[in-house]
Design a protein around this nucleic acid. Structure first.
Lengths: 126, 126
DNA sequence: TGAACATATGAATATACATTCATATATGAT
DNA sequence: ATCATATATGAATGTATATTCATATGTTCA
């Protein structure tokens, strides 16, 4: 069935509030930036990585120690450290056989902090 | 081959820097809280959801308009809104057939803002 | 009551990704 | 040079999840 001109807007083809949609559309940051933002938060969306970041907030650590701390395999930790490094959240230095990782972003603490604030707020409310 | 007593600590079974590991272990928040924090950030780790949140930062919107804005199906948006609602990031009100969604967390703006700051900083540096 | 419509939802599918396993690389010690 | 060790990495696997599709629910209007 074809929509006639001046018919009541259908949801599938038209917006109900076209003015709102147009205004919001103009204000949205560009798509690529939003994709990068999503990828950034995705990094924090894993318990193992959160733990690694919090651990490094305390002090630099080698792969081996992180694996020991979290009771996980060296390989798993190494893979995750690569993710964190690709996201520019950690950096590393090599000392002989040992590779030490440390934070490379001064915002990590605040970001995780805000997440925890949200949780506490939410847990209190319900 | 069995490790003898007093042998040099092996990475797989022992930590290299036991003191550091022990100190960090004491300072780590409890496991459940970290899991919730990870789940919280996971919600931000999706481009569609980031867009929805940013849109709602501007004004409340109905499902239909959000679908129109993002050029996605009503069903996909509805599913994502449920995720956002379960995370207490959005709330809704019903007006006849139409359901309007709006933000339910005053931190959303700052959290996404920090993500974008990180991206810009990173993109500048390389 | 029945038709049109806005939204919600369960199942299916396709894709992303975390961990494991096996192995490669690099460094230090003997 | 050989061996032990610390880390990195590619492939495989299992699990999580984003979207689609079909359909259910709830509301308005005639």
């Amino acid at each position: 069935m074809i929509n006639e001109k001046n018919s009541i807007p259908l949801c599938e083809s038209n917006c109900i509030h076209e003015d709102v949609v147009n205004r919001v559309k103009e204000n949205l940051p560009d798509d690529e930036l939003l994709g990068e933002a999503a990828d950034f938060f995705k990094v924090f969306g894993d318990k193992t990585r959160i733990k690694i970041l919090l651990a490094l907030l305390d002090s630099e650590m080698c792969v081996c120690d992180i694996a020991c701390l979290l009771d996980m395999s060296q390989s798993a930790i190494s893979h995750q450290l690569r993710v964190l490094k690709n996201s520019n959240l950690v950096k590393n230095r090599k000392d002989g056989k040992v590779v030490y990782y440390s934070l490379d972003d001064e915002h990590v603490k605040e970001i995780i902090g805000q997440g925890i604030v949200h949780i506490r707020h939410k847990n209190r409310g319900e």
